[in-house]
Write a protein that binds this DNA or RNA. Structure first.
Length: 890
RNA sequence: GGGCGAUUGGCUCAGCUGGUUAGAGCGCACGGUUCACAUCCGUGAGGUCACUGGUUCGAAUCCAGUAUCGCCCACCA
């Protein structure tokens, strides 16, 4: 039984279920086994959301933008792939799981590595499907048959092979260094995960007594150092001053005595010391400060670690051993004060690093770590963007990218965590390192040949972003030359938040170029942050998070998608306000009702079309052609906001406000033949179908549902294609400039008449007689053709063209437009208000004329401006002059 | 300390390579119960495009500087 009508009310809850299943059943999201001949490629590898969480609006924005592009290219007939996946988020996942198991009184330690990882895999299985379902609710047209996970075997192999190649190329190394350490997560973190924040601390000035010749402290002689971290005094191995500092020149080469421990500290000179800061003398704690570490290396100073991995003072700290670092700070200060060696203390603004994941204060920690020397990789990645092989949208992020690439440091890739890819390095008892890309490990030590059973594997795992950096090709089968890799790599667009430009995009560029010798994508499209209505970042702690699913439940996925991209420029943060969401909902409703009108207006018996297309028919076809050309251009240029605004404008203004209203006239005219009605209705249905095609990328659910109904009612309109998602993107039809001009003139007259009525407070329902003096013969003909439409649109009846009627019967309200001079209203007498209105209209036109004459009298303009600009201004002037004559004539 | 960006009607924002009278959504005012839609229709008010100078026939748009705000990066204890 054919559905002839759509439900009276648009209800997303009623239409959205089922649509996605229809798409899946059609196989539309999975590329055909063979690419269509001659097809262009369009590939997006989805930025993998973390398994740990539910989707937020940022993900919804990502999915919407990518889905729009993918659906567009699919309709274009391109060889299109959008590949989904999730990221294992090692540190984030452990953070979440630790909390979960803590609720049951368990911990990492109580479970042990193996059982902990078992729990993790179970946790993954539970949450992974949640993300998939959310993407389905959003309408994301992902190829689920290719869904990947950064911890699956393909990814694991890619990680091993990539790392082995880096090792073989001498770009991976293991060595001692000071790294950022999170004492709560108990792992190294990268520079990027160490977020700096300004805080108010204290700057203490502490006296270090000078050593006498017998090595005992001189009670009357000291050097004062300034520090914000007194607890690290216990790890000091020197005191440094600036070489040119006269105050301390004599002290260089002598020794100071470390409080509490009595260690002798050489007083050294190093240019890194700022003379103007504090006392100009600084304590050197190589194992707990990055600056000091560098100084120590220059001067070959010992490095003493005084904190353990949880940031408690260790045995090196003497009497303070066992104290937490902050307790120890207080204790040290108290003791110094008691000893009379605390010279001063004052509040001090300082910048403190915090763990991105848990916000704990990061501790520099001396340890042996795996690093990647990224400088050579960065140089290539930078060149790719500089030379335009990969471009970033918006373009100004290319500068940000360049700045980061130019100042890059080696990447500490090792993590002392369990959930992740274990670094494929094996150690032999002699200290040799063997890196292998074989899952089972090497058969023997690469250097001394010791058998595998004498080798032990590294326990550290990789930074999550290492596997993420391989994502564009590890998902396609790399390192094997799989058919997918050959067919879909390099990919097309990488769409993601600008927040992870460095974390992820930069790493993909570097590793992509290193592993595959080609840029992994030609375009990086960065979107901004979705903020709350007050501009605040959404966060669970603030409680201002909007759940996309809840939003979809309320207003529908289409409305949410529309709201997310409408008026949103790339790289710019947007506030998601209720008004914005309501805009999406309203537009959904508008589309639904436009479709209801068309479906409900179908004549019972649809006969053969007869007669010539009417003005609105010819006009809407031309407008659709224009809208199609514009949408195509904008989507090709990744101007999504422009695309959405354009189709919105077409649907609401052109189609609903003008075409539908005028088509009603043709459909309801009593003297219309069934064949003429059929013709008009077919135009309405055809152009509705065209509009649905244009809207499908952004509002897939409504358009699909309307399409289905339209298809049942009139398969000709859908050209026999029952499923919009696989329908063709519309071909660019022909514009009809003459018809568009004629229509524009009619619209101008209608608007002008409506304005007159409102300003003169004519009751909205009143019918007024209209008299028009056409400006010329063409206008007369146009007016004759348009009379039928003019009546209901401007609520005027009867309509008389000057010459046919008595001039004394003209109305008292007058307006002059391109088509001519028009009068409406009772009687011919001018009221004061009407005279004032007409005067103001005259003033406006005269001012315009004056401005244009001034412009055209300017020799510089006429000579130097492009001819078409000058011609345009001339035409405008002529038009205004004609309008003035008409106004004065009336 | 370095870098990047923003400043457009009451609010939130578009304005591509300089070219009509600077747009949209929301809000506001006024008027609308006819058979697609009040999640709607019609009409309207509202902006010296932060400021100063420059380039140009012409600047919201390009250049320089100033102010305010925001973000990113950074090893002054």
């Amino acid at each position: 039984p054919a559905r002839r009508e759509l439900a009276a009310r648009y209800d997303p809850a009623a239409i959205e279920p089922g649509v996605y299943e229809r798409w899946l059943a059609s196989g539309a999201f999975t590329p055909a086994p063979e690419p269509p001949p001659g097809a262009e490629r369009f590939v997006i590898i989805q930025p993998p959301p973390n398994v740990t969480g539910a989707l937020h609006l940022g993900h919804a924005l990502t999915a919407t933008v990518e889905d729009i592009l993918v659906r567009y290219h699919r309709m274009r007939g391109d060889d299109t792939l959008w590949l989904p996946g999730v990221d294992h988020a090692s540190i984030g996942a452990q953070f979440v799981l630790d909390k979960l198991i803590a609720a049951k009184g368990e911990s990492r330690e109580s479970l042990g590595r193996e059982r902990y990882l078992e729990r993790m895999w179970r946790f993954m299985d539970e949450t992974r499907s949640v993300i998939g379902n959310q993407h389905r609710r959003l309408g994301a047209s992902l190829d689920w048959t290719r869904e990947r996970f950064t911890m699956d075997e393909g990814s694991a192999r890619a990680v091993r092979v990539a790392f082995k190649r880096l090792w073989d190329a001498g770009l991976a190394y293991r060595g001692q260094a000071l790294v950022n350490w999170c004492p709560r997560c108990r792992t190294t973190i990268s520079d990027l995960e160490n977020v700096h924040r300004e805080e108010t601390g204290t700057l203490w000035t502490v006296r270090y007594h000078l050593a006498r010749s017998d090595g005992t402290p001189d009670p009357d002689a000291w050097i004062s150092v300034a520090t914000t971290r007194p607890e690290t005094i216990l790890g000091d191995t020197a005191v440094a001053v600036h070489p040119d500092d006269d105050r301390y020149r004599d002290l260089v080469g002598r020794e100071a005595i470390l409080p509490f421990l009595g260690r002798r500290l050489p007083i050294i000179a190093d240019p890194a010391v700022e003379r103007d800061f504090g006392t100009g003398a600084v304590k050197i704690t190589p194992a707990h400060d990055f600056d000091d570490y560098d100084v120590a290396k220059r001067h070959a100073l010992p490095m003493i670690t005084v904190l353990d991995e949880e940031a408690r003072m260790n045995a090196e700290a003497g009497e303070f051993a066992g104290l937490d670092r902050f307790e120890a700070r207080d204790a040290v200060v108290d003791r110094l004060r008691a000893m009379g060696d605390l010279e001063a203390e004052r509040p001090h603004q300082l910048v403190v690093g915090h763990c991105d994941k848990c916000d704990t204060v990061v501790e520099p920690r001396l340890s042996v770590q795996w690093f990647i020397d990224v400088k050579p990789l960065a140089a290539r990645a930078l060149a790719s963007v500089r030379e335009g092989r990969t471009r970033i949208i918006p373009a100004h992020f290319e500068k940000v990218y360049a700045h980061w690439m130019e100042n890059i440091h080696d990447w500490a890739v090792g993590r002392q965590l369990w959930w992740g890819h274990r670094i494929p390095a094996w150690y032999c008892p002699d200290g040799h390192i063997t890196v292998s890309d074989v899952e089972a490990g090497p058969a023997a030590c690469a250097e001394c040949g010791r058998p595998a059973d004498q080798l032990t594997q590294e326990t550290d795992i990789f930074d999550t972003w290492f596997s993420s950096g391989l994502w564009p090709f590890s998902t396609l089968g790399w390192p094997d030359e799989t058919p997918d890799l050959q067919r879909f790599y390099p990919t097309s667009v990488m769409e993601t938040a600008y927040e992870i430009l460095f974390f992820w995009v930069a790493r993909m560029m570097m590793l992509g170029l290193f592993c595959t010798d080609v840029e992994p994508f030609h375009t990086v499209y960065l979107h901004g942050i979705v903020r709350d209505p007050y501009g605040q970042k959404m966060s669970k702690t603030k409680g201002n998070v909007v759940d996309p699913l809840e939003m979809i439940g309320e207003i529908g996925a289409d409305a949410l998608r529309f709201a997310l991209v409408f008026g949103n420029a790339p790289g710019v943060d947007q506030r998601l306000t209720p008004a914005r969401l309501a805009g999406g909902r309203n537009f959904s409703n508008k589309l639904w009702n436009a479709a209801r009108f068309v479906l409900g207006a179908r004549p019972e018996e649809l006969e053969e079309s007869t007669g010539q297309p009417s003005l609105p028919e010819r006009w809407i076809r031309s407008r659709l052609a224009e809208a199609t050309a514009r949408a195509t251009r904008q989507l090709d240029a990744l101007d999504l906001a422009g695309y959405v605004a354009g189709v919105y404008e077409f649907a609401w203004s052109d189609y609903c406000d003008w075409f539908v209203e005028m088509a009603k006239v043709d459909l309801r005219r009593p003297d219309a033949t069934p064949g003429e009605r059929a013709r008009v209705w077919r135009t309405a249905a055809d152009s509705l179908a065209g509009m649905l095609r244009l809207l499908q990328p952004v509002m897939p659910f409504i358009t699909e549902q309307v399409w289905a109904t339209l298809h049942e009612v009139e398969p000709d309109a859908t050209r026999g294609e029952p499923l919009l998602v696989v329908a063709d993107w519309p071909a660019e039809g022909a514009r009809d400039e003459a018809v568009e001009r004629e229509m524009a003139d009619l619209v101008e007259l209608v608007r002008s008449l409506r304005n007159l009525r409102t300003e003169a407070s004519v009751p909205a329902g009143a019918w007024l007689a209209l008299t028009v003096a056409p400006s010329d013969e063409t206008a007369r003909q146009a007016l004759t053709r348009a009379a039928n439409y003019l009546e209901p649109l401007a609520r005027v009846r009867p309509i008389e063209l000057e010459g046919d009627g008595d001039p004394t019967e003209r109305g008292r309200l007058m307006t002059a437009v391109r088509l001519g001079t028009a009068w409406i209203g009772e009687g011919a007498e001018d009221s004061g208000a009407e005279v004032a209105r007409r005067d103001s209209a005259l003033r406006e036109v005269r001012a315009g004329i004056e401005r244009l004459r001034g412009l055209l009298d300017n020799a510089g303009f006429v000579e130097r401006a492009p001819a078409e600009v000058v011609a345009r201004e001339r035409a405008r002037l002529a038009e205004l002059e004609a309008q003035l004559r008409r106004l004065e004539g009336g």
